[in-house]
């Protein structure tokens, strides 16, 4: 399995990472090195093995649907790049 430059650009797009033309080649080379390394997993017989998502076999805890946190909007928005009237500002997405 070896990635093409187009695939690298597609993955970068999915990951929301801008990648320059110069970076693409070097990144492709390094990603292919890592993918070649993890390729050895394919040779292992895992028929009938249950995937392990977590170290502990615990069930998801549920809590009652009640407000437990105080409103700290001002503190949280004080560290935001851009806010107005209690809202986070981003470039216009709907015309």
């Amino acid at each position: 399995m070896s990635l093409t430059p187009d695939e690298v650009r597609r993955i970068a797009r999915l990951a929301r990472l801008e990648i320059s033309a110069e970076e693409t080649d070097r990144t492709r080379e390094q990603l292919n090195g890592i993918l070649a390394f993890i390729e050895q997993l394919q040779a292992v017989d895992t028929a009938g093995v249950e995937p392990m998502a977590h170290a502990m076999d615990i069930v998801q805890r549920l809590r009652s649907d009640a407000v437990t946190e105080p409103d700290r909007r001002e503190a949280f928005q004080a560290i935001a790049p851009e806010t107005e009237a209690g809202l986070y500002l981003v470039p216009k997405v709907i015309e």
Partner: peptide, 13 residues
Amino acid sequence: YYLKAQKIRRLIA
């Protein structure tokens, strides 16, 4: 990849 790795994780544990 991901599911395969999780199965191998089980074998390791």
